[in-house]
């Protein structure tokens, strides 16, 4: 479970989020919307402790921002899959190695890595592109690799920061479908977006909006 309790975030003396409270349960699909610069990315970064809270407590599974030591942060990140708008693929290695990288980091066995990487690539429909280099792929394909990399560790939570921000509407729809499929298998998803069309296509999702440094629930019909 994810829990933010009275969390505030500041950046260079200006407050971005003020006393935010949030709970995400296992298997939930939550959209995080808000205008550009509202603090969506900052809120997501709190979840993998890339940004420290100015105050309040964040709990991610067994880890709490109050007690976590610096050296434990990598272990927290292994329980959360992260998808980025700019994919952050490693340009110097092929698709297979990009996905396998996450498992190497955890010290997984080679044979085990192969099996899990191939399954993750099959899940995102890119088995046939496993030997391609990132620059040989389309934007949508690159993002699928990003999703496979986030999935391969079998995280209970996927944090997606504008995963369709750089993609055309049709490809964005495909990526959303993929995320819904993953969510249906029980993985909780917290996705930041300003693409309201995508939000409308996901009626089962919960929608949260950052407005005036606060996090508020929004009904689907008001989107």
């Amino acid at each position: 479970m994810v829990s933010l309790s009275d969390v505030s975030v500041s950046y260079e003396k200006s407050r971005i989020l003020e006393n935010v409270n949030l709970t995400v349960h296992p298997g939930e699909f939550v959209f995080l919307v808000g205008r550009t610069g509202a603090g969506k990315s900052s809120l997501l970064k709190l979840l993998y402790m890339d940004v420290p809270p100015a105050s309040g407590t964040i709990t991610i599974g067994e880890y709490s921002s109050d007690t976590i030591r610096n050296r434990d942060v990598p272990y927290l990140r292994r329980t959360v899959g992260i998808i980025f708008q700019d994919m952050k693929l490693l340009e110097d290695r092929n698709v297979y190695d990009n996905v396998a990288f996450t498992l190497h980091v955890t010290g997984a066995k080679r044979k085990n890595i192969k099996q899990r990487v191939l399954r993750a690539l099959a899940d995102v429909g890119l088995s046939h592109k496993r030997s391609s280099m990132p620059h040989e792929l389309s934007g949508g394909e690159q993002q699928r690799v990003g999703i496979a990399r986030a999935l391969v560790n079998e995280p209970w939570l996927l944090v997606a920061d504008e995963p369709t921000g750089n993609l055309d509407p049709s490809t964005s729809g495909d990526i959303l479908e993929l995320l819904i499929k993953i969510n249906n298998r029980g993985t909780a998803i917290l996705m930041a977006t300003h693409n309201y069309d995508l939000v409308r296509k996901t009626p089962a999702a919960r929608i949260l909006q950052i407005r005036d440094r606060q996090l508020v629930d929004v009904e689907m019909r008001k989107i």
Partner: peptide, 10 residues
């Protein structure tokens, strides 16, 4: 940076 984000230790 990516290594850090996917959970690699220092």
């Amino acid at each position: 940076q990516t290594m850090k984000l996917v959970g690699a230790t220092r």
